[in-house]
């Protein structure tokens, strides 16, 4: 029973770790994979292999992968919705699933070898702008979607092109801001 469950989980985790596109999640899946693998080694009567797997999996391999991932810059996208007052799972799932836009930006980041990270928060726009730790802020009010991008950012031109080309007929605007937090609305 135990053996069957753990072996099935092992296969499942291996497939997920290969298939996922966000690399930091793959590191977590691999961590769990090697935990289960280590227990199975123990179960089949090889404690020496299990202890080696334990040391390597939790210490060495995680460190190695994370050091390798440092070459990928993290692209932080902040999603805020005026209607919700609390953050919970429903907010995050609906917010990220409903918007085709977020999907596309994520795909764009992956194609540029950036690591997309989406953060959902219910806070006001001015607070978010002051924090300066987000590369892109997406704000939803009813049907209106507004994208705020930092002017100094390298990818902001291409993103603007993408959004204007794809979403011209929808209620979607792209606004740049600069160091002094003044907003430049695109005239064209």
């Amino acid at each position: 029973m135990t053996e069957a469950i753990l072996l099935l989980l092992l296969v499942l985790l291996a497939i997920i770790a290969v298939e996922t596109q966000i690399l930091r999640m793959a590191v977590i899946f691999l961590g769990i994979f090697s935990l289960l693998l280590s227990f199975l080694y123990l179960y089949y009567g090889a404690p020496d292999v299990a202890i080696a797997e334990a040391v390597m999996a939790s210490g060495l391999v995680t460190l190695l992968y994370l050091t390798a991932l440092k070459r990928h810059r993290v692209y932080t996208i902040c999603f805020t919705n005026e209607m919700f007052r609390e953050v919970d799972d429903r907010y995050i799932i609906e917010g990220t699933r409903r918007g085709q836009l977020l999907r596309e930006i994520e795909q764009f980041c992956i194609s540029k070898e950036l690591e997309p990270q989406i953060i959902c928060t219910p806070e006001d726009l001015s607070l978010l702008l002051e924090k300066r730790s987000y590369d892109l802020i997406i704000r939803q009010e009813g049907d209106q979607l507004t994208v705020y991008g930092n002017q100094d950012n390298y990818f902001v031109d291409e993103l603007e092109m993408l959004i204007i080309m794809r979403y011209q007929d929808l209620n979607c605007k792209f606004i740049r801001y600069d160091e002094e937090l003044t907003l430049h609305e695109e005239a064209s």
Binding site: V87, Q117, I119, C120, T121, P122, E123
Partner: peptide
């Protein structure tokens, strides 16, 4: 620190 907040009012 990454900005995960629960509720608007408390903040």
């Amino acid at each position: 620190t990454s900005g995960y907040t629960i509720r608007k009012e408390v903040r």
